[in-house]
């Protein structure tokens, strides 16, 4: 990137290993504020691990550094601050099943930011309306379809007003007819200027919405570029092979 300002997320020499098995072999990556980055790559290439390191859901080698908005990501006091700024949406939604939808969205602002219940609820209903499920607010997650649950999860992450949203294959667990409604919400979000890092197998979405596409393979960042560069004229054979496999299937 040619921006003058410091990147919002900075990853330097990111190494992640399980015992003898190295999952990430020294990743360097900068992500600018407002950027939408899509991460693609074959299964097991380390995509989930990479984004889960950004909010330290995965511990990584102490020699590596990740900073988010200037704060170093490491165990300790500052981690809560990082996590408050970094929202995450999981493949399996991970909504809290014992709380109503609106409570799911209210919880973190109340507990982490100290927002009053009334204000948190007002905000939660507004967000639920924004993701198109205002009328489901008082149901429980188990009563909603997968697509609706994932939109609740997005609203829940947004309630913290994060600077960054991480998505780990947000549509992979959905029935095909529900993929569109979730991608629509994400597309709309991308237009609002929030920084997004999206691990996805939806090549159409990546091509259309991403500012930058990153191709990973074998725990390495193989190449990065605009959607046109990656999809239309990939420079690595491995990228070409992967795209051939997913686009022809």
């Amino acid at each position: 990137m040619t921006t003058q300002t410091a990147p919002l997320i900075s990853i330097r020499g990111l190494v992640k290993a399980y015992d003898a098995f190295t999952v990430l072999h020294g990743i360097d990556l900068d992500i600018a504020e407002g950027e939408v980055v899509c991460v693609i790559g074959p299964s097991g290439s380390g995509k989930s691990t990479l984004i889960r390191c950004i909010n330290h859901l995965e511990a990584f080698s102490p020699d590596s550094t990740i900073t988010v908005d200037g704060i170093r990501v490491e165990p300790g006091k500052a981690l809560a601050q990082v996590r408050a700024e970094v929202g995450m949406v999981f493949q399996s939604f991970n909504l809290f099943p014992h709380m109503s939808v609106v409570r799911n969205v209210m919880l973190a602002p109340m507990r982490v930011r100290g927002t009053s219940a009334a204000e948190a609820e007002r905000k939660a209903r507004e967000l639920l309306a924004r993701v198109g499920i205002a009328e489901q607010a008082d149901k429980f997650p188990g009563q909603l379809s997968g697509g609706q649950q994932q939109r609740v999860a997005i609203a829940r992450a947004l309630a913290m007003e994060p600077k960054v949203l991480l998505f780990d294959e947000p549509t992979s667990a959905l029935d095909p007819e529900m993929v569109g409604e979730v991608l629509d919400v994400m597309r709309q979000l991308a237009g609002t200027g929030v920084t997004m890092v999206v691990v996805t197998h939806e090549m159409g979405f990546a091509r259309q919405v991403a500012d930058r596409v990153i191709f990973m393979d074998g725990g390495r960042l193989v190449e990065a570029g605009t959607p046109q560069e990656i999809f239309d004229r990939p420079s690595h054979e491995r990228t070409r092979g992967f795209l051939r496999a997913v686009l022809n299937h």
């Binding site: 909010n55 996590r83 408050a84 995450m88 999981f90 991970n94 919880l107 982490v112 913290m160």
Partner: peptide, 14 residues
């Protein structure tokens, strides 16, 4: 499920 702990952590809950 582990996902409940992860979702809580990702939200910044103590």
């Amino acid at each position: 499920p582990k996902g409940q702990f992860e979702a809580s952590a990702a939200l910044g809950l103590s």
